[in-house]
């Protein structure tokens, strides 16, 4: 058993080594932590932003409108404020844009966003962190067909859909030594050069709500799942105690 312990120690160390943030290569992203909130107010605001700013091009084809009752909206409110393309509340949040047309216009068809928060998770952070950073990292770039570029998603096909809220940012470049004696140009930071409707903090809060909604949309039953989890764990805990006592009751005659 000594060997076993040693092996387990090695495994644990390896696991720890894997878990610790490694010295990242230059290409790795630094993502801001997204302040995700599942309060009804945040999710409702996020839903409103999503319908107004995203659903022109992006669908959420796995989500039915009436699911939004789960975030505190009534069916009437959904019908009145959020549904433009259909009148059936059980319908999925699809868009009228044809994929072929979209491909023609943007080069790539805008992806369906139902699962985007789950798909964008990586070693650099959660999908929410990626989205939160991405939506705040657009800057003006005249070399791009849309006039926009993004720090998190270089040469992105999408223009800055929320620019009227955030305003226009420009990239401040800095030339640095890369450690091998070569000069490389990097983006040091983004600066708002033309203010939008919102102050930067207000904009961040709006993006946080939108991201919260996207996370919720990725798996609308996630809070129920976690809630149920505690009950299941408690029941299994009781089962384990009983099973332990049962085992002892039998094994007392093994000698």
């Amino acid at each position: 058993m000594k060997l076993l312990n040693k092996l387990l120690c090695v495994a644990a160390l390896l696991g720890a080594a894997l878990g610790t943030p490694l010295a990242q290569a230059a290409t790795e992203l630094k993502l801001d932590k997204a302040p995700v909130s599942f309060s009804n107010a945040s999710l409702q605001n996020g839903a409103k932003l999503f319908v107004n700013y995203c659903m022109g091009c992006h669908g959420a084809s796995f989500l039915r409108y009436n699911r939004l009752t789960q975030i505190g909206l009534t069916e009437q409110q959904i019908k009145d404020n959020l549904m433009f393309s259909t009148d059936k509340v059980g319908e999925q949040m699809k868009i009228a844009l044809r994929r072929e047309d979209a491909k023609q216009w943007f080069g790539v068809a805008p992806p369906d966003l139902t699962l985007v928060a789950r798909a964008r998770a990586s070693e650099s952070g959660t999908g929410a962190d990626w989205l939160y950073t991405y939506l705040r990292s657009f800057y003006r770039d005249d070399t791009r067909p849309t006039g926009w570029n993004n720090v998190v998603f270089p040469n992105v096909g999408m223009p800055h859909a929320l620019w009227s809220l955030q305003g226009e940012q420009e990239a401040r470049l800095v030339t640095k030594d890369d450690g091998h004696g070569k000069k490389v140009t990097e983006i040091e930071k983004l600066e708002v050069v033309k203010p939008g409707l919102l102050m930067p903090e207000e904009y961040d809060a709006q993006v946080a709500d939108l991201v919260s909604f996207l996370v919720w949309m990725g798996e609308p039953s996630q809070e129920t799942r976690r809630g149920l989890g505690w009950i299941v764990l408690a029941a299994l805990g009781v089962l384990a105690v009983l099973a332990y006592l049962l085992k002892h009751a039998y094994w007392k005659d093994v000698h």
Binding site: V232, L233, A240, A243, L246
Partner: peptide
Amino acid sequence: YYTVKDIFGVSIFLIIFA
């Protein structure tokens, strides 16, 4: 003997699994 022991093992496994 081993059925009751395995039931205990199963219940611990199920906690981790759940």
